[in-house]
């Protein structure tokens, strides 16, 4: 098994290289890069007169001088052959130097780092709560198949699935934050967060996160719950459960000891995928609740063509998904011995 995982880890290197090449090529090829954006901004800033002039002279003239433009090109590496500038970019990435945001001027890694704790917090909470709800609910539904409990929970789960997360967000904000005023309208912490005691801080964060978590999770139950239910039902009908019963084992014990372990194999496969999902977040929900997370950052930088940030997010995101995949593999190998020896 160790050899298998060493091989898997080594495979990260070529995959990661491939991803960086793609990211680099795509951002280079898409028209409207940072230089064009700066030109427009400069035009807007210097008013109509200049803009009229620039229309006549094209991009090269106008507000920025030739030397300024060259400086910019040099800064973004546009002046060098594509391979060379890719090499420089790659080297910088490996040193965690993701460049500077063209929008704020601050290092990309800084703005990503600021958002990470918030996104990780919501991601981990969503994932934990989803597993904590879906696995027991799936088991219950499988054992009580076609009873009232099963049918009613199916309806609820599907309603949650059918309502988009941001709509759910607006609904819960309207009811619980606006009319009932039970929860805050938005934000990650209160304004007086720094003055609070440790327990106060924890409470404050939890209090702020109830509504966003509801919005995040309302749709997440359906897939996992039904995956659990169906997979357990398959395994309940499996021959080895019958063998266990034929040995004289009680039904409950047979479910726990034999069917359950086999039915979490597909759930384990899903595990790593969820890690990437939660980091990507949902910019709509983040926007509604005014949470400064990863999703919002990615969305805004894309709209603003803030390429260093976009590239930084893509690179980190894909690295995380690679790690997520390996985590999935480890999880599957832990529950399924056939995988351990088969590879």
């Amino acid at each position: 098994m160790t050899a298998y995982f060493i091989r898997r880890f080594l495979l990260i290197i070529p995959t990661f290289l491939g991803i960086t090449i793609l990211v680099f090529t795509v951002t280079r090829m898409v028209p409207g890069g940072p230089i064009e954006r700066m030109l427009t901004e400069a035009q807007l800033a210097s008013g109509d007169q200049v803009s009229f002039q620039s229309n006549n002279q094209g991009i090269a003239g106008s507000t920025l001088s030739e030397s300024q433009l060259n400086q910019l090109k040099e800064y973004y590496g546009f002046d060098k052959p594509i391979l060379e500038s890719y090499g420089i970019w790659l080297k910088n990435i490996l040193l965690l130097d993701l460049g500077y945001s063209t929008r704020y001027g601050e290092p990309v890694w800084e703005s990503i780092k600021q958002r990470l704790p918030i996104s990780i917090y919501y991601g981990v909470m969503t994932m934990l709560l989803t597993y904590m709800v879906c696995i027991p609910l799936g088991i219950l539904k499988a054992i009580k198949h076609k009873t009232h409990i099963d049918n009613i929970s199916s309806i609820l789960v599907f309603i949650g699935y059918a309502i988009p997360g941001y709509v759910m967000g607006i609904i819960v904000i309207t009811i619980f934050a606006f009319y009932l005023e039970w929860f805050p309208l938005s934000g990650f912490t209160s304004n007086n967060f720094d003055e609070l005691s440790f327990i106060g801080k924890v409470k404050d964060i939890l209090w702020h996160s109830v509504l966003p978590l509801i919005a995040y999770m309302s749709g997440a139950f359906a897939v996992m719950t039904f995956l659990m239910k169906n997979s357990l039902m398959d395994n309940l009908a499996a021959d080895y459960v019958r063998t266990a019963m034929a040995k004289g084992m009680e039904f409950k014990t047979a479910v726990v000891k034999h069917a359950f372990r086999n039915s979490i194999i597909p759930i384990a496969t899903n595990f790593g995928e969820n890690i990437t999902l939660f980091l990507a977040g949902s910019f709509l929900i983040e926007k509604i609740f005014n949470i400064d997370g990863f999703g919002l950052l990615g969305y805004e930088s894309l709209v603003e063509r803030d390429y260093p940030v976009v590239m930084g997010i893509l690179v980190i995101g894909s690295l995380l998904s690679l790690i997520g995949n390996i985590l999935s593999d480890i999880c599957v190998a832990l529950v399924d011995p056939r995988v351990r020896f088969g590879a």
Partner: peptide, 13 residues
Amino acid sequence: FQEPMTALNPVHR
């Protein structure tokens, strides 16, 4: 049972 391939639980020794 008939099918010794599936009558034993694959995840237990």
